[in-house]
Design a protein around this nucleic acid. Structure first.
Lengths: 199, 199
DNA sequence: CAGTATATCTAACAATCGTTAGAATGTCAA
DNA sequence: TTGACATTCTAACGATTGTTAGATATACTG
């Protein structure tokens, strides 16, 4: 990995734990193994590191969303499965190390940074809501549930997953135990409340 | 208000917005209108300010919990009403300015401070869960719902409220608009999902 | 009035912050 | 080998950090 990428990775790792301000350029340099001035060769200033992280994140997630919202991405089988939610939304977003750290960074910074607050609202509430509700909308379109029932069930599902995200994935250190708990409780909810859709 | 209380109030206001480290003693003093050394007359050091805030918070909430868990607090009418949730849990906890700021402070600090992470888990997930589930447990004990049904309904209610808390009460600045949205959506959920209990 | 305790002040300390100028390397083409 | 460019270094800057010693002011007690 080149120095610029190392700086970004290390910075994100530290920002996601302590926040932007408390992490100094020297902290990052110490972990990467370079001198402070090297950072200013690759980045205009400290803020530029943060901006670069968000550019990478939004590129990453935009490409994910393009796949997810393409018409034949997950409902081409005509029997929408929650295995899709598992593979894409859980593994490649909520549980993905890079995305998870970006969400932690947004969580810390949103209270005093208006720009980040908007990104936080979007990537932790609005887009997940759209993604999860689109599953239930399809269930209604396929005649498996009534439109009314699919909306109510979708909102309960969304609320349940959101609570699990904050309780396990954005709470303290992200341990294997917490990842497991998240996945198990999510699956448990799906099978007990929505099990009739599977198999 | 005396100087010590002013320091605590101002510090909490700033900590809850920016976090503990980014707020300097001089920031607090500037807002209060005193010199730095005055802080060290009232507090041992900066950490002592934080500790004092948690002591006050836990005293405040413990006294609240004592009322809530007393047998004749809310179910003495033998018809548990969600007006109780509204008056105590919403107004005096989630929406209370002091408690809300403490929750924001815990939210910011929990990712890198193990002690605060435990408090965060307790005061944002565990105790709210206990409080909300106790309502539904009573519904089951009164024979209004089956034990099984009350547990499932309680967990959905808890997940829904938790999501609203993070979406509205711990997301950016706490505006009147967000407070209103929280209350309206909470009431809407109660009346549409649990309306048969009221009246 | 004198004396004591409480409360706040002035002024400084060593350490750390983001940032920068300019010298020293490393790499590759001519 | 020379020159050009990319990359990293040394060394410092002014500002800000938490904290402290000691002087000053205010208020109650005898």
């Amino acid at each position: 990995m080149n120095t610029k990428d190392k700086i970004l990775e290390t910075a994100l790792s530290m920002f996601s734990e302590h926040g932007y301000d408390p992490v100094s350029i020297r902290d990052i340099c110490g972990a990467v193994g370079i001198k402070e001035s090297t950072v200013y060769y690759h980045f205009k200033n400290k803020q530029d590191i943060l901006d670069s992280l968000f550019i990478r994140f939004e590129e990453h997630v935009d490409s994910l969303l393009k796949v997810l919202h393409s018409p034949d991405a997950w409902n081409h089988s005509q029997s929408p499965s929650f295995g899709w939610i598992d593979t894409y939304f859980f593994d490649q977003y909520l549980l993905d190390p890079f995305c998870n750290r970006m969400m932690r960074l947004m969580l810390i910074e949103q209270l005093h940074n208006k720009e980040i607050q908007q990104k936080y609202s979007r990537w932790l509430f609005e887009e997940p809501y759209r993604i999860e509700m689109s599953v239930f909308e399809t269930l209604s379109q396929l005649g498996i549930m009534s439109k009314e029932s699919s909306e109510r069930t979708g909102e309960c599902f969304y609320a349940y997953i959101t609570t699990l995200v904050f309780k396990y994935l954005l709470n303290g250190e992200l341990t294997a135990r917490k990842k497991k708990a998240f996945r198990e409780e999510a699956h448990s909810y799906i099978t007990s409340s929505l099990g009739f859709l599977e198999g």
